[in-house]
């Protein structure tokens, strides 16, 4: 579905769909920095993360039997990438194993939620594992 949307349509969709994430003030600054993200000693990450902030649109398509989700698109903020994963700020809690499609200006990627942490009201940090490995330049283009 989304794969058939071309670059211009994708950009229009990202501009048009409202983002309901409310980023707390003390997080705004961390969203301004771009570049390689330093890992915390306790994170045990497999690959390097690249911090880059992008508006995105999310489509949930693989909801869990007990947690049905409405169809449609919602705005989100991509926070960082690695080859296998992505950090996204979302306005509500998602559960591990939920499937979603993240639509960026450059590309649409499919992913699974592996963790979700509450940052503030209407701001949840999702850890996603991507369905396949991506080159950073594919995601950043």
């Amino acid at each position: 579905m989304l794969d058939t949307i071309d670059l211009d349509q994708r950009r229009q969709l990202i501009e048009r769909i409202p983002c309901r994430v409310r980023v707390p003030d003390d997080w705004q600054r961390s969203l301004e920095a771009e570049g390689c993200a330093a890992s915390q000693a306790n994170e045990f990450r497999a690959g390097m993360r690249y911090r880059v902030v992008r508006r995105a649109v999310v489509q949930l398509y693989g909801s869990l039997p007990a947690f049905p989700r409405p169809e449609g698109y919602t705005g989100a903020i991509v926070q960082d990438f690695s080859r296998h994963g992505m950090g996204v700020l979302y306005h509500e809690q998602l559960f591990p194993e939920e499937r979603l499609r993240v639509l960026l200006p450059s590309i649409s990627v499919e992913a699974t939620v592996i963790r979700c942490r509450r940052v503030a009201q209407s701001c949840y940090q999702l850890g996603l594992v991507l369905d396949r490995d991506y080159r950073l330049r594919e995601l950043l283009a």
């Binding site: 869990l64 039997p65 007990a66 559960f95 591990p96 194993e97």
Partner: peptide
């Protein structure tokens, strides 16, 4: 535990 059980309808 949640991941193991979440697809049980």
């Amino acid at each position: 535990g949640f991941r193991r059980l979440c697809r049980q309808d």
